[in-house]
Amino acid sequence: MSVLIFLDQADGHIRKSSFEAACYGSQLAAQLGVPAETLVIGTVSDDLASLGQYGINTVHTITENSLNQADGQVFTQVIAELVRTINASVVVLSNNMLGKAIAPGLSVLLKAGLVSGAIDLPTTSNGFVVKKNVFGGKAFAHVGITTPLKIITLNPNSFPITKLEAKATVKPFVAIIPPSKVKVVSTKKVEGEVSLSEAEIVISGGRGLKGPENWGLVTDLAKVLGAATACSRPVADINWRPHHEHVGQTGLAIAPNLYVAIGISGAIQHLAGVNRSKTIVVINKDPEAPFFKSADYGIVGDAFEIMPKITEAVKKLKNK
């Protein structure tokens, strides 16, 4: 028995959301009194033994170049094979694009109940119950998994990364790689310097900024804070900003530590994508903007005057 954590990598490096999954999985393993094991697929340049600092005992690797860019269903079959080999009782993945492509198929292959988008460790005193957000962040559900084998996908930015001093054992896993039914024609990177779904701080702009030429107000602050940038739906729809920056119900749902909304009124569809943020700041010249009701901090005023002053103040703070 063990907890197996699938670690997602990009360009040879383990993703931040995967470190969160590693910490989540190893703490769950400790709770269950079993070892924590991980699987890394593809060629990774990181020191994998150092994954021990996240509480990982064993790292299984499949260093196959062809798997740097594979179809989710191929990963699903490879993970299922490892689960059977090491007799894992829980599989943890990040609830990111790849995790969402893999986990449902894995659930069918292994006849294992899946809870996607977990935000806390399961309670295991009476059954196996996982907490997740439902109804666009308006409620929590506690979902019981009734199968012997369990699969959990963890929402990015929902679990703290903690470190200890330990080394993991790295072991190659010889897997049967099934042929992919999907031919990858091309891939294109579209994200900025900071990944929006993994960002701890997100600075977001709405129609109140009046035009794409004014986006410096958003990007200047984002730059000094090392933050990702986002926008509201109308802004993406009128092409002021790219669609992948759209956060909200039909765009990306995010949960950063700090979300700063500038010139966004806060329609319920927008809130559904951002209300899991830990701290929300709203800057809007309309004191009646509904967003203020969901905010922790707010300034009623003209963003064109306020934003440069905030950016200046942050620069001063950073230089201290």
């Binding site: 990009a10 860019q69 694009m97 999907v182 990858v184 024609v185 091309s186 891939t187 579209v190 994200e191």
Partner: peptide, 11 residues
């Protein structure tokens, strides 16, 4: 959509 980008597939 893939993490941080997009991918074109044929199937």
């Amino acid at each position: 959509e893939i993490e941080g980008g997009e991918q074109t597939d044929q199937v």
